[in-house]
């Protein structure tokens, strides 16, 4: 099992889109290493011939008729938005200057 370094935690936080401060990294990285160590036994717990289970109760695809049902109004959907403009969600710029 690979260990998890402080740099790796920083990289994972980046992937997860969380700005961790240096203090947070110092605090969380050793804890995560300890948690991973405790779950490491799992790699040897099962042989290859055991199938995986993703869902507790076996299910087949669930379909419904394609009928129109009432949804949220624009007002309801926008009511709790951080910012709105012309009945739309208003978001910060998504591209940099160079793009």
């Amino acid at each position: 099992m690979p260990e998890i370094s402080r740099d790796e935690v920083a990289h994972l936080a980046d992937l997860a889109r969380i700005d961790l401060s240096d203090a947070e990294l110092d605090h969380l990285a050793p804890q995560l290493a300890k948690i991973l160590e405790s779950v490491a036994s799992i790699s040897a717990a099962v042989s290859d011939d055991v199938p995986a289970t993703s869902h507790p109760i076996p299910l087949t695809n669930v379909f419904r008729d394609d009928v129109v049902t009432p949804g949220l109004t624009a007002e309801e959907a926008l009511a709790m938005a951080p910012a709105t403009d012309q009945q739309r969600f208003s978001v910060p710029r998504i591209l940099g200057d160079e793009q």
Binding site: V39, I42, S43, A45, V46, P51, A52, T53, S54, P56
Partner: peptide, 17 residues
């Protein structure tokens, strides 16, 4: 890491069932 962790955990789930 997917197979070593998530994949194995799902197999353990089968054993627990």
């Amino acid at each position: 890491y997917y197979d070593a962790y998530y994949g194995q955990a799902q197999k353990v789930r089968t054993l627990i069932q």
